[in-house]
Simulated assay, not measured.
Amino acid sequence: MLRPRIDVVLLTMNDRPEEETAAQATLLAQTGVDLRICVVGNGCTPEIVPAGALTVTLEENLGIPGGRNAGARALAEAGRAGEYLFFLDNDATFPTDDVLARLVTAAEHHPEAGYVQPRLTGPDDTTTPRRWVPRLRTSDPGRPGTITTMTEGVVLIRRAAFDAAGGWADPFFLFHEGLDLAQRIWARGATGWYAAGIRMHHPLTSPTRHALFHRLAARNRVWVAYRNLPAPLIPPYLVLWMTATAIRAVRAGGARESLRGFREGWAGRHEQDRQPMSWRTVLRLTAAGRPPII
């Protein structure tokens, strides 16, 4: 019996060698699947590369979506592409040797799903921040089900769904590229599945550690809306997110940079690849528990 073929893209800036070594070791230990690995140096030459892996050296940092797209293209150009793509953060680890095989099994049990998301936890195998639960109802991260967004750094995507959706949104650089890709996959008739019983580990970091967080998160929210929503839904979406951002800024700061990001996003919206989803997709997302204005 043929084993599932998975193409794995791992992005690096050579900035966390210990974590990356651990990530690759647990990746190479995966059983029951055939792997091809591409390590992408985002503005650098990769220094930690498994034997036999492809490498891509990007002369400049293209951001996370651009770097991952470069890896996916390199794997496709290297020969017969795998049925699945797996995108792996270079500080994420597989706690057991059957994670990828179990994710493929979940995908086979849910053929309607264009992507399958494991439950991401801290190294303690238990703690799951709310932002890592890819659905609105986050109180029980152990409950599986259909999802409408994704946690980008540990996700299995069918190659056909990824290519049909056009891959990651290069212009985003960082933040919300998973929401954008998920909506484009849904717009083409597929769904997403949260395989909550399958865990992966990641350091418990905060996105606000990035100096560009507030600006890019706000900018990309505008672009997600403009790229994917029917025109009548764009204003309520942006009003809701600007209100939520203002409330959060009272507690955590970042109001000025967020406002700058919203302005930047609005000014640059016409440079984005607008492919508004159908009203049928809006209804499907709503039925799945996430109206696309939320």
Rank of each mutant, 00 (worst) to 15 (best):
A244P: 00
S278Y: 03
C38I: 09
N61E: 07
A78M: 00
G66S: 00
L212N: 12
V154D: 10
L88N: 03
W168S: 02
F162R: 10
P65L: 06
F94I: 05
T93F: 01
I48K: 10
A78P: 00
R269L: 08
R215G: 01
D125S: 09
R251E: 13
L229K: 13
N220D: 12
D98G: 02
F172D: 10
R209Q: 14
G145K: 12
V250Y: 14
T21F: 03
D273I: 00
D170G: 01
R135M: 08
D170M: 00
A244S: 10
P17I: 12
P50R: 11
R209S: 13
R3K: 15
L58R: 05
A70Y: 08
G67Y: 08
A25P: 04
V154L: 13
G178R: 02
A218E: 08
R284N: 11
T208I: 15
T149H: 06
H210V: 01
P207H: 13
E271T: 15
R263Q: 04
G189K: 13
T96L: 01
F162Y: 15
G114K: 07
Q272D: 09
R263V: 06
G32W: 05
P292Q: 14
Y115N: 10
H202P: 04
T208H: 14
L11G: 05
G189Y: 10
G66V: 03
I293G: 03
L120N: 13
T245L: 04
G63F: 02
P291R: 09
R143W: 00
G167Q: 11
F172Q: 10
T121F: 10
E77V: 05
T57R: 14
